[in-house]
C-alpha cells in the first residue's frame, strides 16, 4: 500500500555519515571559496594570537606596570574585534550566497535540521583548520619579532603555559565565531518557505 501520509511514519533520512560526506565534498568542490574564507579566519586569529603572544613576552621581560597592562588589555580587545569582524563577514557572505541552494535542497526533501547539520560540519571543519593554522602562524610571528634580542628567554618555561593558552584561545575563538556566523544565516535560510529561498537574490 502506498499513498496516505501518516499510515506509517513517513520520514526522510539523512544520516550523519551522509552529512559528513556531503560537507567534505562541498568544501572540496568550492575549494577556492573555502580557501578565501579560511584565509580570513587565519588572518584574524593570527592577528589576535600574534598580538597576545607579543604582549605576554613584553610583560615577561619588562614586567607589567599598571599602565602597560591596561595598554595590553586594549590591544587584546581591538585584535579580538578585528578578528571577529573578519570571520563574521566572510562566513555570513559564504552562507547567504547559498540561500537558493538551501531552497533547492528543501524541495528535494531536506529538512531544516539536515541543512543545519551540513553547515555545522562544514563550518566546524573550516573553523578548526583556519583556527589552528592562524594560531600557529600568529604565535610563530610573535616569537620571530623578539627572536633577535631575546632569543634566550622565549622558551622560558614560564612563557610556555601562556603560549598554549593563547593558541587555545585563538582556536576556540575561530570555532565559536565561524560556527556561530554560519549557523545563524543557515538557520534563517532553512526556515524560509522554499519558495522564498528560491526567489532570494543577493
Amino acid at each position: 500500500m502506498s499513498g496516505a501520509v501518516g499510515e506509517a511514519r513517513r520520514e526522510v533520512r539523512f544520516p550523519i555519515s551522509e552529512a559528513f560526506r556531503f560537507s567534505v565534498e562541498s568544501i572540496r568542490k568550492r575549494f577556492t571559496r573555502a580557501l578565501i574564507t579560511a584565509i580570513s579566519i587565519v588572518l584574524g586569529v593570527a592577528f589576535y594570537v600574534g598580538l597576545r603572544t607579543m604582549s605576554d613576552i613584553m610583560i615577561f621581560i619588562y614586567g607589567g606596570s599598571e599602565a602597560a597592562r591596561s595598554y595590553q588589555f586594549w590591544m587584546a580587545i581591538i585584535s579580538l574585534i578585528v578578528c571577529a569582524v573578519g570571520i563574521l563577514n566572510s562566513m555570513l557572505m559564504a552562507v547567504t550566497e547559498r540561500t537558493r541552494e538551501i531552497g533547492t535542497m528543501k524541495c528535494l526533501g531536506a529538512m531544516d535540521s539536515h541543512i543545519l547539520m551540513i553547515f555545522l560540519i562544514e563550518s566546524s571543519l573550516i573553523g578548526i583548520i583556519g583556527g589552528v593554522m592562524g594560531a600557529v602562524i600568529g604565535w610563530v610571528t610573535g616569537l620571530l619579532i623578539y627572536v633577535g634580542e631575546h632569543a634566550a628567554i622565549l622558551f622560558n618555561p614560564a612563557l610556555l603555559g601562556s603560549y598554549a593558552l593563547r593558541i587555545g584561545e585563538g582556536v576556540l575563538i575561530a570555532m565559536v565565531l565561524t560556527v556561530g556566523a554560519t549557523i545563524y544565516p543557515a538557520y534563517y535560510a532553512a526556515s524560509m518557505d522554499p519558495a522564498d529561498a528560491l526567489r532570494f537574490e543577493l
Partner: peptide, 11 residues
Amino acid sequence: DAYELAWLRCR
C-alpha cells in the same frame, strides 16, 4: 508536520 512535508516533497 515538518517531517511529513519533507517526505512529501522528497517522495
